[in-house]
Design a protein around this nucleic acid. Structure first.
Lengths: 337, 337
DNA sequence: TACTCTCGTGGTAACGATAACATAGGCTGT
DNA sequence: ACAGCCTATGTTATCGTTACCACGAGAGTA
């Protein structure tokens, strides 16, 4: 009847076992000093009693958690999911857990989230991108845990970063198109302003085109970022209507690029003969679709893994660790050759 | 220099303000009894001091957290991501946070994860699927918080569930194919055993075929679940080789179906004229690709939202709430008409 | 006036684990 | 044989917040 009796604590186990609570506590820490027999007996007793270790109390007393806080723009994005996967898997080896939040590409929301996450006393905080509200920035600067910005090379890094130049990556794509003989090149992205990385890719496109002495005004904004396959298709239709003589298009992501590709197929426009297409992010779709999609591999999973290793290094050794610059890789596939 | 001074606590704010710590505490709880002026003054002082609320201490003392623990098989799956998105958004309105873990389609890993998550004293726990290791099951049965199984209708529910019949959904697809005149129908899925939902869809396929008096032996296992687009393509190649006279194929997911579709295109097999294809999950790709993909909409996001609302109801009202059965919807598109 | 009720606030103890220090016994080496 | 060290365990105090109870002041009521 009294199924509502309180769950057992370490003190209960200690009483049953005739040892001190401290010994029970130690039995749960892998590296601490308890004789093997005592530990095993305690762990067995704990299991029998249905004891569940109270991380809340442990974190509170020791003033640190096993959390690493992470903010990403959207959960529904294979690239960020890969990064989180790399982070989670690498940190799991040290029994650390990810505390994840979604900003929905909104810096205001990011600020709210950062504040909420910091309340949990994480061991480190990982944010996506290098732009934040002033208050978010202050929160991150003040907090005394490692701060890592990812997916970008911040103009003014707060702490560490593991990222790459979005503008530089797009330049690779533009260079590729130009050396393939294209001159009238367009860019398809989302509306400017919200998606920082998208905006930087757009800026990188403009800079690269101008560096080649080419016209950089063929810019199609397809909607609120992140733009979908459907929006990519719509943008392509618009592009062909407005600038029918365009030879190649750089898309802000593979999803947009795939949408553009299907639109071309619908319209009977040959890719790559009549129209070369490049994407971004090396999504699975790009290597399966017909024709396969030229893209930029930003090594999303590696970003997560390297970030995790950076965090572990900082926690172990101290903060004398260097930042990590990833060099994205241009992958040329059938959609541009 | 002494940048390492301890962060301020409520007691510090109380001292500065000349009130009791209790009043400071109340100022941070939206619904508690403090005069508006006092609250505002306290919140301002807190901001000035750079105070960060300590959720760890709060959770510890009040013996409850704002967490809802969630396990999903994989982060890199748009369906589960949608469910988590629905959960997170709905719970965010109540300032609750998701504590997420990935099982990697492994029940052993799920057990480990459930144990780890329960240590955080979540307010509720949401698991994907209705099959668990005996120990995981015991942990869930013993814990005194709401337990919700999703994406399935468990044979023996532990607590509540928000799900649908995977077998029933596949039956809809088979019925659709049969009424379109197809008789030689195949199934493409992953290797049996790991992915519970995949296995149930396969079983549902067999049952539905037998119910129609048709041969249910055209089963292609494409690899370790979840199977990729590439594996779907490979499976299609194998299917055409082994059973060249097949008329239609049911795929375990839209990703596999899309792979199958591209393989058909490569081989010059006309879809749907020569070969009808159906997927599962209503991924974005299915409504953009050419031809568009017939699929099953399982309302992934709604599962998350309904689960969240169920949790909130239980926490508010008590556990007299009913379970939720979702009815998946067959979406017929060009790949099968 | 006296009595009840609500509002705003204060005082005290406690949540469960563990950091820090202490101690008993066994072993090593000279 | 004894200082010195290592191992296994115990004792005490404490992390920061909030549950619980108490209390005074003013409002409302009879």
């Amino acid at each position: 009847m009294s199924n509502i009796r309180k769950p057992p604590t370490m003190a209960d186990i200690a009483r049953v076992m005739g040892v001190s609570p401290m010994t029970v506590s130690r039995a749960f820490k892998a590296d601490s000093l308890v004789s093997t027999e005592t530990r095993e007996a305690i762990l067995k007793a704990a299991e029998d009693l249905g004891y569940v270790f109270d991380s809340t109390a442990s974190n509170f007393r020791s003033q640190k958690s096993d959390f690493v806080a992470v903010t990403i723009p959207s959960i529904n994005n294979a690239n960020f999911a890969d990064t989180v996967g790399g982070l989670a898997d690498t940190l799991a080896a040290r029994n650390m857990q990810i505390l994840l939040g979604y900003t929905n590409y909104d810096m205001q929301e990011e600020e709210r989230l950062i504040e909420q996450l910091l309340r949990r006393k994480p061991q480190a905080i990982v944010v996506t991108g290098g732009k934040h509200t002033p208050r978010a920035r202050r929160l991150l600067e003040t907090v005394n845990i490692p701060v890592i910005e990812t997916w970008d090379i911040p103009a003014e890094p707060i702490g560490h970063y593991v990222g790459f130049s979005n503008a530089g990556a797009v330049r690779q794509m533009v260079d590729h198109f130009v050396s393939a003989g294209h001159r009238r090149i367009a860019f398809i992205g989302g509306d400017v302003g919200r998606d920082t990385r998208g905006s930087e890719r757009r800026a990188g496109f403009i800079a690269a085109m101008e560096a080649h002495g080419l016209d950089a005004s063929r810019l199609i904004a397809a909607g609120v970022p992140p733009i979908s396959m459907r929006e990519g298709a719509n943008a392509m239709a618009r592009l062909i209507e407005i600038h029918p003589d365009t030879q190649a298009v750089v898309c802000v992501s593979d999803l947009a690029a795939y949408g553009a590709l299907t639109e071309c197929r619908r319209l009977g426009v040959a890719v790559p003969e009549r129209f070369a297409i490049g994407g971004f992010g090396n999504y699975e779709i790009g290597e399966v679709c017909v024709p396969t999609l030229t893209t930029i591999n930003a090594f999303a999973r590696a970003i997560g893994e390297k970030t995790a290793r950076l965090i572990l290094d900082i926690l172990d050794v101290g903060s004398t660790v260097e930042d990590v610059r990833i060099t994205p890789e241009l992958i040329v596939r059938d959609s541009s050759r």
